[in-house]
Design a protein around this nucleic acid. Structure first.
Length: 390
DNA sequence: CAATGTGTTGAT
DNA sequence: TCAACACATTGG
């Protein structure tokens, strides 16, 4: 049932192995600047600016009036966007993995290359990549970098255009650090001090730490999503096959007692578990920054209330930003919304009103779009099975 | 409303 | 697998 793991094991999906070694390293922030050697080998489509409504300085302004069809890219994995920009995508398992949009074809092509390397290893056909030249060292670093990150992470970086930066950092760390110690450094590693969080360590609440994650630039970027490390996602927030793609709504209570509802789902496209809807609001409200740590906890009680907290990476960050107050302070719980997984459906019980809402019942959209309950579980009367495990 | 990314489908 | 096309969502 858990199609998730079976169907896609994240990196392992790549079959052969994780040994995705990279050869080239656009470690340089400048994408093609340094590496712009081999033009598109294959296709060799030399179409330029033909239909894009946006100006393409690169090719000289082509005034194009043929609007309908967008110009196809000469690069593999690059597709034109209605805006005149370029999108990058790669396919795997009949599923498309969107790599983001870019202004220049080259940039998009670059992104594709990176993804190709990460997804398919060095044999992957790329637009430029085969570049290795003399920087074996860098190659090795990038190889480590890639192999130590999930596909989802790499994809996020590409989409957020932070790949080069991340790689850059990794590079530095690599040099000073060990050549190969722990390549796994995303989630709970941050500081390890972990619990220092809400400082809570308040046994009174009977809540247990599930896991933590240092948010990446992507997590707090414009992607409006939080990638939950697969291991933790499957361990703590298992999705039923029926929910996998549709997603479910999960309620989390923050340190201030505020309840946050996030859409939690599995993205086939990037093969990752993510918190999407609602996440951006959380990021804004809390003023989350890359590097900050987000912690997930769960009540040990029957309600299994979920909690979410965060902590700035640096201790007392001036936080003078906006007014997001130090909501981080004390970890207290107010009126938690109960959520129970029933029949493969999440049921939320709103305290006070005793109202029970079925996750996903989308219905009321008055003149507006369905903004809140867009995702639904279509299984209600099916398989009467209570999943209280979570 | 514009931009972005997803759903889909048809071609290779 | 890939890319073209359409359009649903999201953010501003």
């Amino acid at each position: 049932m858990d199609g998730i793991s079976s169907s896609t094991t994240d990196e392992s999906t790549t079959s052969t192995t994780e040994s995705i070694s990279l050869t080239a390293a656009p470690a340089d922030p400048s994408p093609f600047a340094a590496t712009k050697p081999s033009p598109p080998p294959a296709e060799s489509l030399c179409r330029m600016g033909s239909g894009a409504s946006v100006v393409l300085d690169g090719c000289g302004g082509g005034s194009e009036a043929e609007s309908r069809k967008l110009p196809s890219s000469k690069y593999k994995g690059v597709v034109p966007q209605p805006n005149g920009r370029w999108g990058a995508q790669i396919y795997e398992k009949h599923q498309r993995v969107w790599l983001g949009t870019f202004n220049e074809e080259d940039e998009a092509a670059r992104a594709y290359d990176v993804a190709a390397q990460r997804f398919r290893g060095r044999d992957a056909v790329t637009n430029f990549k085969p570049l290795s030249s003399d920087t074996d060292q860098n190659d090795e670093i990038e190889a480590s970098f890639l192999s130590s990150h999930s596909k989802a992470e790499i994809v996020d970086m590409l989409r957020k255009h932070t790949y080069n930066d991340e790689l850059e950092q990794s590079r530095r760390n690599y040099g000073s650090r060990n050549s190969r110690a722990k390549l796994n450094r995303s989630p709970s590693s941050a500081g390890h001090s972990g619990l220092g969080f809400g400082s809570g360590s308040d046994p009174l609440k009977a809540r247990e730490q599930l896991f933590e994650k240092a948010v990446t630039p992507s997590d707090v970027g414009k992607l409006n999503r939080l990638v939950i490390p697969k291991q933790h996602a499957e361990k703590h927030f298992p999705l039923q096959s029926s929910n996998t793609s549709k997603g479910v709504l999960l309620n989390f209570e923050d340190g201030g007692g505020k309840v946050w509802r996030f859409r939690y789902s599995y993205w086939n496209s990037s093969q990752s578990y993510v918190l999407t809807k609602g996440w951006s609001r959380f990021v804004k409200e809390k003023g989350l920054k890359a590097g900050d740590i987000v912690s997930f906890k769960r009540s040990t009680g029957p309600d299994k209330q979920l909690y979410i907290d965060w902590k700035a990476r640096d201790n007392s960050n001036s936080n003078g930003s906006n007014g997001n107050g130090p909501v981080t302070g004390p970890v207290q719980q107010l009126e938690p919304v109960q959520m129970v997984r029933l029949f493969g459906v999440n049921i939320f019980k709103i305290p006070g009103s005793g109202v029970v809402v079925e996750a996903g019942i989308g219905g009321g959209c008055n003149g507006k779009r369905i903004r809140d309950l867009e995702l639904l579980e279509l299984e209600c009367s099916k398989k009467p099975r209570i999943i209280g495990a979570l």
